[in-house]
Design a binder for these strands. Structure first.
Lengths: 354, 354
DNA sequence: CTGAAAGCGCTTACAG
DNA sequence: CTGAAAGCGCTTACAG
């Protein structure tokens, strides 16, 4: 017996690895803590959760023990008992062609940090097109307590699904549905202001080129552009507006068209479009800003190193993520949340509209 | 009593919403299934898991009931019983400055789909610099069964932590540690081949400009470049090699230096650097490819619309994600996995090196 | 082939 | 203020 103990000790001291493994494999449970302290699991549970009255002396002892032994409650077990997961789901567009990755990455960072601050984790699920399979899996498997939907579509099948199944969710972006909690930058106002600034520079023929009509954002930005024209008394010219323009051949044609119609400036709804427009202009030996002004409704690393630097709108993606996540967490906690939150933007004037 | 029942029925039929809510709130459990079929929970559990012998008739009945009533087992409960979470963790760099978001997004897509195929979900955790807090949270909270580390650093604190705590993990990228399971594109060979091609075009003074020495990838790429020089018998000229060059002023100086030293071509280790180099060249009125050839060891949307189109290496990010995730899942299932997996690449020759 | 029972690690009425 | 016990929804020896 004594020998046996000696042997074991020796193992422990020489083979640090084995000892660590033991610590790693068999984690301490609430029962261990309770036993060690001669109290009930109930008591330990209560001091950890802070619910219920506990003698201050008992509380101190438990807290100290937990601290000293670095006990961490098993969140999964806690979740099962409380019917929670402490996970939020982030649904991202899987087909990356028309999203700005850098924006989403920053946004994810914001969400991730806000979640972590509340001891939540972020499960991200990429869905392709209209395939709801992954979303269904996520909710049917009870993997999340609530969901953040990014990229709001005009026809929002994911939102409809979540609504039908009573899964708490918020949306990054703007949707026409009144009953959906939405967080977004004030794109309409931002686009109005940028357009106004250009008009005030004396530019009269400001063309607009935009992305998919299937995205709500496209309509919002168009709205802002039209707001500005109206306010300045400049009649909208439909031959200077082109949506659903995402491929290069089409952009090439449109730019040619705009030039013919006497456009003085081309407003691009996003940087991917703008980048292509700049390429087309370069090919056509139309110089910016001398022969044509260019601005983007959005700024990203895509245009960062362009010469001339491109005037654009700036939105704080990380902040959007943070606010969105906090809103969802508030919602999950049963707190009142605003149906709609609009975040500020900045207009960044550069050489491309000089 | 009868009236009471009647009332309840009426509620159900008129207020569809309430009924749906009920369905959503109180999910069917394995006990419900067992009771409805007059079998034990054990039996139901066994047919679902496929473990143990079950009468084919019983099996059929259970399967049919499950199908018809769309019963979905609670993965959380299953996890608690099996000490698993069916989540994998993806650790991403939070400071986005020197990563290509688009590459990571595609990679995430690959991981996400491979995970989903095995009914796993992906928790992504962004960590800033050397802050291990989030990683610790993830493992201490039992939130994941295994972890994918992206962006391998020379000093890899996350890997060390996971090793110490015996958490199964794999790494996207290459590390010197023998005992770490790593999946990567063959950057060394890719860079060797690209450099060779340039040398075979007769270019003798090929300069190299790279990112942080803190990243393993920087050294790997440098290695490939040197391999090529050596194979062609071209002596390496240290005045044509510059690492840790990530800010514009420094790049501006380096490019000037290279020109002075008679460089005929500038190889950039990534597109962010390349984009800045192109800007500097444009500013300095050095035209590409006439006065200076340019190539990037990497291709992304950042250079997509550049004129002239930039020669570069192409890596399939989604495939990298898929393979990485499968490797981790294999590891979790106790299967044998290769210590190192290298994926193929492509060289894409364009006008910038004509 | 099938089931009763204990267990995974927590929480939470209920009772004292 | 504290605890015994039941429960969250599964799995899995163990016994038949």
């Amino acid at each position: 017996m004594t020998m046996d103990e000696g042997t074991r000790r020796e193992k422990n001291s020489t083979r640090e690895k084995a000892q660590q493994e033991e610590t790693a494999i068999k984690k301490m449970t609430i029962a261990d803590v309770a036993e060690a302290l001669g109290v009930s699991k109930t008591t330990v549970s209560r001091v950890i959760s802070g619910k219920g009255r506990i003698g201050s002396e008992t509380k101190k002892r438990v807290l100290r023990y937990i601290e000293e032994h670095d006990y961490k409650p098993n969140v999964i077990a806690k979740g099962l008992a409380q019917n929670k997961t402490f996970n939020i789901g982030l649904i991202m567009p899987g087909n990356h062609n028309f999203v700005d990755s850098s924006f989403f990455q920053k946004c994810m960072l914001g969400i991730s940090e806000a979640a972590a601050a509340a001891d939540y984790d972020m499960i991200v699920s990429m869905i392709r097109d209209d395939d709801l399979t992954q979303l269904e899996r996520l909710v049917q498997n009870h993997k999340v307590d609530g969901i953040i939907l990014s990229r709001t579509l005009v026809e929002d099948a994911p939102a409809a699904y979540l609504k039908q199944h009573h899964v708490p969710f918020v949306v990054i972006g703007t949707t026409p549905s009144q009953d959906v909690i939405q967080i977004d930058h004030d794109h309409r106002e931002a686009c109005r202001e940028l357009t106004s600034i250009l008009l005030l520079k004396g530019l009269r023929r400001v063309a607009l080129i935009g992305g998919s009509r299937g995205l709500v954002i496209t309509h919002t930005r168009l709205r802002g552009y039209l707001d500005a024209l109206e306010a300045q008394g400049v009649p909208a010219d439909s031959s200077l507006i082109s949506l659903d323009a995402d491929n290069e051949p089409m952009l090439e044609r449109m730019v040619g068209e705009f030039v013919k119609k006497g456009a003085e400036c081309i407003l691009c709804m996003d940087d991917s479009i703008c980048s292509k427009v700049l390429k087309v202009l370069k090919k056509s030996r139309i110089s910016v800003p001398e022969d044509m002004r260019v601005a983007s409704f959005y700024n990203s690393p895509l245009l960062e190193n362009n010469l001339p630097a491109v005037t654009s709108l700036h939105f704080d993606a990380a902040a959007l993520g943070t606010v969105t996540c906090r809103t969802l967490l508030d919602l999950l906690d049963g707190r009142d949340v605003p149906g709609r939150t609009l975040l500020r933007y900045e207009v960044v004037l550069k050489e491309s509209t000089k």
